[in-house]
């Protein structure tokens, strides 16, 4: 199973990510986010960040997870290529605890597209058609 793929979108970036578990889908979505800006192979593992977000439903949890990662990228100038995710359901919503591994932005990093934000447009998280995993879709504003 491929971890993620980019779909045709005129002005912005649309991607889908896949996984056997929700955790894997969320982790692959984070990879798709960073991969849209820079080759993941160009990111060394030198540091780790812990991220905790919540969401009333899975879509909102995904939006908050990716938005938080993007915030750390833009505000703290860090990029990531490896992720561990744990998702828990509690009454009224979901919570996610994630670890992101990567490094600080350096001279050697040359970026492709500049992303402005993660959007809620056309966002979904659902079981895959084959029934053995999950799939999500996200549009990034650029």
């Amino acid at each position: 199973m491929k971890p993620f793929e980019y779909l045709e979108h005129t002005a912005d970036i649309k991607f889908r990510s896949y996984g056997r578990t929700l955790e894997e889908v969320f982790s692959n979505a984070a990879k798709a986010l960073f991969n849209s800006m820079i080759d993941l192979n160009d990111i060394d593992i030198e540091l780790e960040e812990e991220i905790v977000v919540e969401g009333g439903d899975l879509e909102f949890l995904l939006y908050n997870w990716l938005s938080e990662l993007f915030y750390i990228f833009d505000a703290e100038r860090k990029i990531f290529s490896e992720f561990d995710v744990k998702i828990r359901y509690r009454e009224g919503g979901y919570s996610l605890r994630g670890n992101a591994r990567g490094e600080e932005i350096k001279e050697k990093h040359i970026f492709d597209t500049g992303i402005k934000a993660v959007t809620l447009h056309d966002i979904f998280v659902r079981g895959s058609d084959s029934g053995d995993g999950y799939i999500c879709q996200v549009v990034l504003d650029i």
């Binding site: 009333g56 909102f60 908050n64 938005s67 833009d74 934000a117 809620l120």
Partner: peptide, 14 residues
């Protein structure tokens, strides 16, 4: 500006 919109969406969705 991007962050202000991101934050606002979190609130306005609710």
């Amino acid at each position: 500006g991007h962050q202000i919109c991101t934050d606002s969406l979190q609130i306005l969705e609710g």
